[in-house]
Design a binder for these strands. Structure first.
Lengths: 150, 150
DNA sequence: TATTGTTATACTCTATAACTATA
DNA sequence: TATAGTTATAGAGTATAACAATA
C-alpha cells in the first residue's frame, strides 16, 4: 500500500503536464498549418463581427507590436482581414474571412477535447479536475482585475 | 443556486490557466535574470554531477541544435560548464558552477510553490488538484514510453 | 497631449540540414 | 555507418523605442 502524496499543486507540476502535452498540441496546429499563436489569435476573433488590435493583444497578453506581426501572417494567408473603424480612424478591426471561420471552427473543436494524458483518466476524475481548474480560472480572473482595475 | 458545470478538463481550460499564470512566472525568472528555457535547463542539471547534451535536450523536448544555444548562453553567464566525457570523446557533460548551483536552488524553490490562482483556493482543493494532476502526469509518462519505447 | 497601430531593432526559441569528430 | 554535438540558416515570438495618424 503506497501512501498517496498529499501535496498542493505547484508550478512545477503544472508546467510538467503542460510540456508533456505540448507535442500533441503542436501536432494538431501543425496539421492545420498554423502556429500556436496564430491559432490562439483566430480563437479570440469573434465568429461574426470583429475585434480591435488592442483588445486582441490584451487577450493574447502580448505587446501590440507583436500582434501586428501575428495578424500580418494570418492576413497573408487570407484567414483574416483588417478593416477601418468608421468611428475612430486610429482603430483597426480584425475580422475572419470565410476560410478563417472554417479554420477557427476546427481549432475550436480540437481544443475543446481533453489532451491524451487527461483522456486516459477515469471520467469522474476528468470532471473533478475540470471543475477544480475552472475554479482556479475564476481566481485568476479576479486577481487580474485586482491588478489592472484598481 | 447555480448548477456546477460537470465537464471534463479540456486543452482550452488547461492552456487558459497556464497563460493566466505566465506573467507571474515570467516575472520570477526575469528577476533571476534568466529566460524560462534557461531556468528549465538549470533545473534538469543535477545538483552534483553532470548531464549530457543529448539527455538534456530530451528533457527539454527540443532539438539538439537548440540545446547548444541555451547552454552557450548559460555558459557565457558562468552558470554551467561543459566537460569532456573521458569514456566517449563525442559526448559533452554539462555541470553547474557554484553560481549555477545557487541559482538553481532559487529557481527550484520558486517553482515548487503554487501559482497565485492555485494559492487562492482552499488547501483541500489545492491538494486534490495536486493529486489529480500528478496522476495525469503518470499517464503522460506511460504514453510517452509507449510511443518511444515500442 | 494622449492613444492606436506600425516599423525598426535586437534577442530568444524553434526546427532542418550540413558539418566535424568521434565510435 | 552511426552517433554526439556544433554551425548555418531561416522563421516565429518576444519586448522596447521611435514614429505616423488621429483623437
Amino acid at each position: 500500500m503506497v501512501p498517496v502524496k498529499q501535496r498542493t499543486l505547484t508550478w512545477n507540476d503544472l508546467i510538467e503536464l503542460f510540456r508533456s502535452q505540448k507535442s500533441w498540441m503542436n501536432g494538431i496546429v501543425a496539421a492545420l498549418d498554423v502556429t500556436p499563436q496564430m491559432a490562439h489569435a483566430l480563437n479570440e476573433i469573434p465568429e461574426s463581427g470583429s475585434i480591435t488590435m488592442k483588445v486582441l493583444s490584451a487577450a493574447l497578453m502580448c505587446d501590440a507590436s507583436n500582434m501586428t506581426g501575428i495578424i500580418d501572417r494570418l492576413e497573408a494567408r487570407a484567414l483574416v482581414e483588417r478593416r477601418a473603424d468608421p468611428d475612430d480612424r486610429r482603430v483597426k478591426c480584425v475580422a475572419l474571412t470565410p476560410a478563417g471561420k472554417r479554420l477557427r471552427k476546427r481549432i475550436d473543436e480540437a481544443f475543446n477535447q481533453p489532451p491524451p494524458a487527461i483522456a486516459a483518466m477515469p471520467v469522474a476524475d476528468q470532471r473533478a479536475l475540470g471543475n477544480l481548474i475552472r475554479q482556479a480560472l475564476t481566481h485568476a480572473e479576479a486577481q487580474r482585475l485586482e491588478r489592472t482595475g484598481s
